[in-house]
C-alpha cells in the first residue's frame, strides 16, 4: 500500500547538519515522510545514518537545520523549538524509538507487562485492570507468550526483547516509529520472523517508520523509500525497488553489488 499524500508530510527534515567539532556527522539532509510511509536509511558505519536518526528523533539537537513534526494539536512544529516537556511528551506518546540494544529501550528491572504499561501510566492511565488488558493485547500482537508477562526482560531471548520493545512503543499508538538496526545481532531465522512481524504491524496500523540499517535485506522487505548515505550526505534517494534494482550513484551501485562490506 502506498502512503496517502493528501494530508501533507508527517515529518519534514530540512538542511539537517550535525557537526562534532570539525567532524561532520551528517550534512544538509532533506527529506519528508508521509503518514504510513516507511523510509529506509542505509549506509556503512560512519556514513552518518545513526547521527541523522538521533537528530530526527529528538535525541540530539542538530547544529543546523530543522525537524518539523505534524503534531496532533498544532500541526507542523519544529521539535527543537518545543519546550523540553512538550518534546519528551511527544516522544513517549506519538513517537516510538526501537533501539538496537534492548537495554537502551527497556526497563530491565521491571516485568514485561510493566514495560508495556509504562507509557499508559505516563499519560495518566490509573486503572490497573485496563493497563493489564492493554499490555496483554500488545504482547499478543507481538506474538509473545502471555505466561511470561510478569517475567523480567533479562530472562528473554534477544528476539523476544526486541518484540517487547516494539510492544512497549506501540502501546500508545504512535504515528511515527524510529528503528535503529532493529534486527542486528539476532540469528537469521529470528531476524526473518521479527521483520515479518514489523512489516505486518506497520502496514496494519499505518505507522510511519524510519529504519536505519546497514542491511539491504531489511530495507528491501520493509521500506517504501530509501535514502543512501555516505560521509554524512545523502547520495541517492528514491523508491526502494528503484534504488536497489537500478542504482544511479556509483556508491549505491557498489553497495548493491555487495562489493562494499555494509
Amino acid at each position: 500500500m502506498m502512503a496517502l499524500r493528501d494530508n501533507g508530510p508527517l515529518l519534514e527534515v530540512e538542511g539537517l547538519t550535525q557537526k562534532y567539532g570539525h567532524q561532520i556527522g551528517c550534512e544538509d539532509v532533506h527529506f519528508s515522510l508521509y503518514p504510513g510511509e516507511v523510509l529506509g536509511i542505509v549506509g556503512e558505519s560512519g556514513s552518518g545514518k545513526s547521527t541523522l536518526l538521533r537528530c530526527a528523533s529528538g535525541l540530539m539537537q542538530p547544529t543546523a537545520g530543522t525537524v518539523r513534526f505534524d503534531t496532533r494539536v498544532d500541526g507542523l512544529q519544529d521539535i527543537y523549538a518545543l519546550s523540553e516537556a512538550e518534546r519528551r511528551m511527544l516522544m513517549r506518546t506519538d513517537w516510538g524509538i526501537i533501539f538496537q540494544n534492548a537495554r537502551d529501550g527497556l526497563r530491565m528491572n521491571v516485568s514485561a507487562g510493566a514495560n508495556v504499561g509504562e507509557r499508559l501510566m505516563a499519560v495518566g492511565e490509573r486503572h490497573y485492570g485496563s493497563i493489564r488488558d492493554v499490555s496483554s493485547e500488545w504482547l499478543e500482537k507481538v506474538e509473545m507468550d502471555l505466561g511470561r508477562m510478569d517475567d523480567l526482560p533479562r530472562t528473554f531471548s534477544g528476539g523476544m526483547q526486541q518484540r517487547l520493545q516494539i510492544a512497549r512503543n506501540l502501546v500508545t499508538k504512535p504515528r511515527l516509529v524510529f528503528m535503529d538496526e532493529p534486527t542486528s545481532g539476532l540469528d537469521v531465522s529470528v531476524q526473518a520472523r521479527l521483520l515479518d512481524l514489523v512489516r505486518g504491524l506497520v502496514r496494519q496500523l499505518g505507522i510511519a517508520c524510519i529504519i536505519v540499517t546497514h542491511d539491504l535485506g531489511v530495507v528491501r522487505l520493509l521500506s517504501d523509500r530509501l535514502m543512501v548515505m555516505r560521509r554524512g550526505r545523502v547520495v541517492e534517494q528514491g523508491l526502494t525497488d528503484q534504488v536497489l534494482d537500478d542504482p544511479q550513484h556509483a556508491y549505491t551501485q557498489l553497495l548493491v553489488s555487495s562489493i562494499l562490506p555494509v
Partner: peptide
C-alpha cells in the same frame, strides 16, 4: 509514570 510502574509491579 514510573511511580505507578512500581505500584503495578507490586500488584502483578
Amino acid at each position: 509514570g514510573v511511580m505507578h510502574v512500581s505500584l503495578y509491579e507490586s500488584i502483578a
